[in-house]
Design a protein around this nucleic acid. Structure first.
Length: 425
RNA sequence: GGAGAGGUGGCUGAGUGGUCGAAAGCGAACGACUCGAAAUCGUUUAAUAGGUAACUAUUCGUGGGUUCGAAUCCCACCCUCUCCGCCA
């Protein structure tokens, strides 16, 4: 959420910064409303002040005279009633304004960082570096073919259970998924992250706090009976964990790692990645999350990205690091580095982690602050996948495939998986 | 799901219509005493928004209502605790 005061006092600055996203933002209607609201705020405050004084006076008069119904007291009460009516009128106006303004502001995305490359869409993203040896032979099998031949997962029968874009992991597939989750959690825990296991059902306020609501209600599953939603990413409960808190500065940065199932409706992606592990309504993810001192988030961003990268390195999966351009940034993010893993069957890179610095955008929505020089300041939040588990499995299957049809498990994962190769049973 | 109790500042806890933003205690900060410390004594100490400031407003779980005036009365909701039932 952007600062309402900034919108009121410097609307052009706000428009210019938002427009870096490649769309035109006209905030002059909200700007006008914020001015109106400020004006009403002042009027209400003045009236309340007078009305309060009057009430005290009435109290005094009543205690002085034994007669509660004297002419004087009646007149004073009438005057009090006038205040009440006026204040009620203004408050009604203010309530409508507040509601409208908040709705509008909650639908505005974060400012892109001035360090982010300027661009329109994903084609303008900039590759920063590549890592690892690419496996580029011909006739490589896709992770879907490998998974089917080794009986690691199943999607056709799964439509009976739920519907398309769900998967059932089987045998070694399930074991590999578990191994990956534990492997990632262990590495990050050793690296200074505190492990949390948050609920998968999330209330509306939490989704609003991290930026999924009100604008993207289409993208999450909703349990309408209960004002609860299936969490699309652990980023949501992790942000909400400290909602409405003032965090002691000495505790910062707070670093969490959380494994969670993630649920996404994938509205608008019909026909894309319909097969395999890449785009599912439900998938597992290990998420990294930082609450940090506002002066230190740039450094933290590099750090969280490096922590996500460390998993790819340990698993010996080739990847590249991409700097997301202003037009392709997520709603809450000011700067995002994507990690894309190499999938040899399609000779392409695929997003496996997205590491974002949201600055104070989520903290403002969620009211998470810290006291700096006796003043409350919004902290900065950062999130990054570390990593998306299903896509990691896909990458291991494709990059580790052997001529005999088996798959080599990366050395670091062997203790978790329990053997060196996945073979047909 | 049934029955009951309760939600007040950093914490404990008093407050049932009028200088109550809230007694008292604990805690914390500062000062005195001390070579230093403990103990003791004294002073200070809620948050949020707006304002350079003086100051103004709001806040006693949340939202409504009654009233000139609500922590206090009324209504709805949320949450916590205890007991019973059910349950992985």
């Amino acid at each position: 959420m952007l600062d309402q005061k900034l919108i009121r006092e410097n609307p052009r600055f706000v428009e210019e910064n938002l427009s870096l996203r490649g769309k035109v933002f006209n905030i002059s209607p909200i700007h006008k409303l914020t001015l109106e609201k400020k004006d009403i705020d002042i009027k209400i405050s003045d009236l309340q002040s007078e009305s309060k004084k009057l009430s005290k006076l009435i109290g005094l008069e009543i205690s002085k005279s034994q007669n509660n119904n004297s002419q004087v007291i009646h007149e004073l009460k009438d005057k009090g009633n006038e205040f009440r009516t006026k204040i009620a009128e203004l408050e009604e106006k203010k309530r409508i304004l507040d509601h409208t303004i908040k709705k509008e502001i909650l639908s505005l995305p974060n400012f892109p960082s001035k360090d982010a490359p300027i661009g329109k869409d994903e084609n303008d993203n900039i590759q920063i570096k590549t890592w690892g040896d690419h496996f580029k032979k011909e006739n490589l099998k896709s992770h879907l073919e490998i998974g089917e031949s080794l009986n690691l997962f199943e999607s056709k029968k799964t439509t009976k259970i739920s519907k398309s874009r769900f998967i059932t992991l089987i045998g070694n597939g399930s074991r590999l998924e578990r191994a990956l989750i534990n492997f990632m959690l262990d590495i990050h825990s050793k690296n200074g992250y505190l492990e949390l296991m948050p609920p998968a059902l999330i209330n509306s306020e939490s989704l609003q706090g991290s930026g999924q609501l009100p604008k993207f209600s289409n993208e999450s599953f909703n349990c309408s009976n209960d004002d609860l939603w299936l969490s699309p990413t652990a980023e949501v409960p992790l942000t909400a964990f400290h909602r409405n808190e003032i965090i002691n500065t000495e505790l910062l940065p707070i670093k969490y790692v959380a494994y969670s199932p993630c649920f996404r409706r994938e509205a608008g992606s019909y026909g894309r990645d319909t097969k395999g592990l890449i785009r599912l309504h439900q998938f597992n993810k290990v998420e990294l999350y930082w609450f940090c001192d506002p002066s230190k988030s740039l450094e933290a961003h590099r750090s969280i990205t490096a922590d996500a990268e460390s998993i790819l390195k340990k698993l010996n999966l080739p990847y590249r690091l991409v700097d997301i351009c202003t037009g392709d940034l997520g709603f809450s993010s000011s700067r995002t580095f994507d990690l894309e893993v190499w999938l040899p069957s399609s000779k392409s890179y695929r997003e496996i982690s997205s590491c974002s610095n949201c600055l104070d955008f989520q903290a403002r929505r969620s009211s998470i602050r810290t006291k700096i020089d006796k003043k409350n300041q919004y902290i900065h939040t950062l999130n990054g996948s570390g990593l998306a588990v299903g896509r990691t499995m896909a990458a291991i299957l494709e990059n580790g495939q052997q001529l005999d049809g088996s798959v080599k498990i990366p050395d670091a994962l062997v203790p978790y998986y329990g053997s060196d190769f996945i073979k047909t049973i």
